[in-house]
Amino acid sequence: MSRQHESIAPLDRLTPPPDLYGRPRPDRYLAGLDWIASKYVPLVTRKDRYGSRPLEPGNPQELVVATREFVADDVVSLRLTAPGGGLLPRWQPGAHLDLHLASGLKRQYSLCGDPADRYAYRIAVRLLANGGGGSAEVHKELTVGARVEIRGPRNAFPFAADKKVLLIAGGIGLTPILPMAREAAWRGIDWQLIHTGRTRDSLPFAEEVARLGRRHPGKVTVLTDDEHGMPSAAELLARAPEGAAVYCCGPTPMLDALQAAFPASGGKALHFERFSAAPIVDGKPFTLKLRSGRELPVPADKSALEVLRDDNPGTPYSCQQGFCGVCKLRVLSGTVDHRDRKLTDRERANGEMLVCVSRADEGECLELDV
């Protein structure tokens, strides 16, 4: 099945007329003007066929919930559109949106629709009973017609479309992986998709995955614990074509197991996105000092964010992986062990810190402007 990419320009391309002497060869001056118009006018106007300008990806934008449906047990899918129905910024498989919820919470959700659809974004959110409240707010408040502020799209999990790929999704981890599978199929590369979960009812977009499998026989495998038992990481990686790049998203235990088993596999590279914070490696105990003078000890196995949230549950956070910047705080004194993927050298020199991942040396005291 071919995939259509939309190309929109406000003016139709016209063939230059003959030159002023009636000769069949086009006049060079008019041809030059036509070429400039074809390049410059679409660039400065960039309107869609309805006369709307596309939104800008770098700024907060308000979108509308156009449709809403449950696609698995406790998983709701939302289709978000611009209030005026205009174009949305482009995105690539692996991208996500930052949702700024009415409560003040900020959460990130992967885009799981079709990048060729410039008029809607699709996300899917599983209700987490023991989560931080973001998923519950999405399920309860984001009904059809509701408006939500977003930032993005941004991509911290880009799909490079390697010649051979194995795509592994655990449960709701299918959301960034499904567009990758479609992209791989469209590009005609050697690909395999594995979707794992507890039961078939728990797997989101099961029918879409099934259709993808029917269109591309032998490319899609669904493994559920109740029907097949829980597969080992080695068994999953064994399905990769020799020399394939592996892309995976899912629960932390699954990702940790895949990382441990990957060196013994025939894979070329491992790319992954986590649901939650990565385990702390080589952590040392240190102390946070607040403006009030109170000191909060940070154990070796906990993040500064966890300690701050224990003290104040309203402490803002989102990705817990050091790339969104929501938990950024200013450090007034002390030396930070920066472990983020967001801050610039200048921001670090100015005392900024992402408390979800960055730490300090053993015995160090970081005085925070909070």
Rank of each mutant, 00 (worst) to 15 (best):
L305W: 07
I177Y: 08
E347H: 07
D282A: 14
E69H: 13
G132L: 05
A146M: 01
K284R: 15
V336Q: 04
L20M: 11
H338A: 05
G250I: 00
A37W: 02
L97K: 04
G334L: 04
K106F: 01
L329Q: 15
P313E: 13
F157Q: 00
T196V: 11
G218W: 01
A185K: 04
G170S: 06
G171H: 13
A66S: 13
M254S: 08
R90T: 15
R90K: 15
R79C: 14
E347S: 05
K164I: 04
G171F: 07
G133C: 06
L329I: 12
E69P: 06
D74I: 04
T67E: 13
A169V: 03
R182D: 05
Y247E: 00
H139V: 09
R79M: 14
K39S: 14
P279V: 07
A210W: 13
D19A: 01
W186P: 02
F205D: 00
Y247D: 01
L290E: 12
A102F: 11
R126T: 06
G266N: 10
E235V: 08
R339L: 08
D337S: 10
D34A: 15
Y119Q: 12
F157T: 07
A261G: 05
L178H: 07
A278V: 11
D74L: 13
S7M: 07
A66Y: 13
I194L: 09
S202H: 13
P89E: 01
G283R: 00
A181S: 10
C324V: 09
V125R: 01
R3E: 14
R126A: 13
L20H: 13
G243W: 10
E227P: 01
P253K: 09
C365P: 08
S2L: 15
P115Q: 10
W186N: 10
H216I: 01
Y121F: 15
E141Y: 02
P297D: 13
Y247T: 01
R28V: 06
G197P: 03
S276Y: 14
I150R: 08
D117C: 00
G197N: 05
D301P: 00
I172M: 13
Q192L: 03
K302V: 12
R90Y: 12
D310L: 14
G86E: 09
M180E: 11
K140S: 11
L101Q: 00
L111K: 09
N312H: 13
G113K: 10
D114H: 09
A169F: 06
A161N: 10
W191D: 02
R198W: 02
K163V: 15
C365S: 15
G322A: 08
C112S: 12
L43F: 14
P158A: 12
R309I: 00
P54E: 04
L354S: 05
V246G: 11
P176H: 07
T335K: 15
R198M: 06
K39P: 04
I123K: 00
I172T: 08
I36V: 15
E137N: 08
